[in-house]
Structures are given as C-alpha cells and as structure tokens.
Amino acid sequence: MVKPKAFVRKEICLACGACISVCPQDALLMVTGKALVNNKLCNSCSICVKTCPVGAITWEGTEP
C-alpha cells in the first residue's frame, strides 16, 4: 500500500516556515504565501505534521 503524503490545509497555514526548516526531504516549499508539499519528494515521515504549531498539516485523503 502506498503511504499517504503530507498535505497542507491552506486555510489554516500561516506561512511560518516551521515545516520547511525541518523537512529532511526538502519536500516543502513556500508557494504564493502558503506551504506546499511536493508529493514526489515526501516520504510520509510525519515530522512536518507534528511540527506545525497550528495543526495545518494533515494526511492526503484525510482532509475534510
């Protein structure tokens, strides 16, 4: 089974960059003022999900 990728909920993201500074895969970028996950690089390690101070990062497919 393919693991789900991290997913940034744009309506919550405050563009603080915490996720970008910890992503070991460099899979996160700031694009037009919001963090964005590059699915090709994300290895589902969950570091960004846990790090986000406001809980803006969830798993692909589980977003409301």
Binding site: S21, C52, V54
Partner: peptide, 25 residues
Amino acid sequence: GAESRIGKWAGIQTTLKPYDLETCA
C-alpha cells in the same frame, strides 16, 4: 531565516532536526 534556502543551495546542511527547533505560537 530559519528555513534558509541559500545555505542549502550552496551545499551547507541546514535542515533542522526536530530536536533543534522550537515550534512557536
């Protein structure tokens, strides 16, 4: 800043370990 790309592009290891980052509000 903390998420520095410049260092990374120059080949300097700048990714922070979760142990070395305070997440703030």
